[in-house]
Write a protein that binds this DNA or RNA. Structure first.
Lengths: 106, 106
DNA sequence: CTCATGTGCAACTCTGGTGTTGCACATGAG
DNA sequence: CTCATGTGCAACACCAGAGTTGCACATGAG
């Protein structure tokens, strides 16, 4: 199911540093851990750990080129989570509307 | 901006227990912390803390009725976050498509 | 009034995640 | 080959957050 994907994405997006990381990646299109570390106030190793989490969540992918590792953004997991969330919100709306209707009409 | 809302929602949804809590609330429509504690393997106090977080994120609302406090689900913040996420995913798609086009033709 | 039940507040423990540092390894540049 | 640069691995410090427990307070039920 998508459920596992959603779990991972939500956990990954919970951290502000990881969201900044995704912003940088989306802007540059492609970047290494070392490059990204230059744009954030944390060490390269911290960046690597975050990228590992993002990769596990399916939000980024990595390609090894020579002696460096290029990371890029991957929209699918985020899109799936967005759809899940929208559906959940719609479901809540439906339930609340139903309850309200019952309360008003008896 | 919606940005603060999104931050809070993402932080709130990161915890599995809070997501279960939201499920229970959506199912029951209305419930107290004590009632909810009966449906989860944690203490009432833990539930209260989670509900406080969810309330701060705008995902639930509380109403005091006599000596008990009823909590209910609130779809707006979740819906706003879903829209934000969908827009972000679309933006990534757009960027990747652009890069791909350049790589192929340029 | 008396009591049971639900809530609020505070202190405490403890695990997990974030971040750091240090060093070893791999590889392209010269 | 030699060296600089980029990665990988491991141990460590640190702190926010999840959960618990204990007790005091408030209020509906009888």
């Amino acid at each position: 199911m998508d459920h596992d994907v959603v779990d991972g994405v939500l956990a990954a997006l919970a951290d502000p540093t990881r969201r900044q990381l995704l912003d940088l990646l989306a802007a540059h299109g492609q970047a290494t851990a070392t490059t990204l570390a230059g744009g954030l106030p944390v060490s390269r190793q911290a960046i690597v750990k975050h990228l590992t989490v993002l990769d596990a969540a399916g939000l980024v992918s990595s390609v090894k080129i020579g002696r460096e590792v290029r990371y890029g953004v991957r929209p699918e997991a985020l899109d799936a989570t967005a759809r899940w969330m929208a559906a959940l919100a719609a479901d809540w709306d439906r339930r609340l509307a139903k309850i309200k209707r019952i309360a008003e009409q008896g």
